[in-house]
Amino acid sequence: MTNSSSSIIVECLQVATVVFLAPLFTGWVRLLKCRAQARTSAGLLQPYRDIYKLFFKEVALAENASWIFRFTPYMVFGATVMAGAIIPVISTRAPLSATADIIALVAIFALARFFSALAGMDAGTAFGGMGSSREMMVASLAEPAMLMSVFTISLVNRSTSLSQMTHVIVNSPIMLRPSLAFALLAFALIAIAETGRIPVDNPATHLELTMIHEAMCLEFSGRHLALIEWAKGIKLLLFASLGIALFAPWGMATGGTLQSLVISYVTLTAKLAVIGVAIVLIETRLAKMRIFRVPEFLGAAFLLATLGMLSYFMLE
């Protein structure tokens, strides 16, 4: 809730970073994945080209698609960008960070998902409905685990405000905390489920029976698809940044000085690069699960988060 011109500049910088670097992160993950699977990659900048190309393509709307379908891409994009303004990515003192704590942040993502699920059902095909139904199932089972993980972190930091949580971790001595380790593991599993990565969902598949998120977005085309894809990229980046902010925020700027911002960017890039490698390692090593194994996967996330909470009380 601080209002100074420098913090507003930082905020704008952060939103711009999140929005315009997200395709780069997606490109990085794809590039690594191609290398890991001994394929030739389309290059780091391919997501930009894809999005750019889609903006100039014709939009094909299903005959009975309503305004919900046309509004959804904008809504999803808008909500995701707002989330990008809330999560501390380059500075712990971004002024919009205080507008929502982590519970409200989760709800903002849920808002975007609510509209995507509606849009999936709007065209009136079987696939859209299938995607919506599955996506909502994954989301509804991820929620308790997410809350438990948040609870554990908030026990340690005595706050659910994102900037405050980040601030506490940056300013406290490094300790071995089993509770945070468990919460991190749980968070990683939830992030995989929420961003639709292997082993929960395969972002590259268009095979009917295995799609979750893609089935829901199957009917989008042209600029709508561009926005959806872009928002998806931003979401991936945001979950990575959220993980960084909650568990390893070291190096993040706490003020608005130029020097600290530069350091912040350098560390952020390094951390994101590492996360990209981790994603690729998981995605190449594991196979996609059957859809009804997902509840067990998320159950494991819940278990880990609960163990984190328990070990806070029992061991710390």
Partner: peptide
Amino acid sequence: KAATRRSATWD
């Protein structure tokens, strides 16, 4: 920039 076209739902 680009047109919008109504077409049958993809089947």
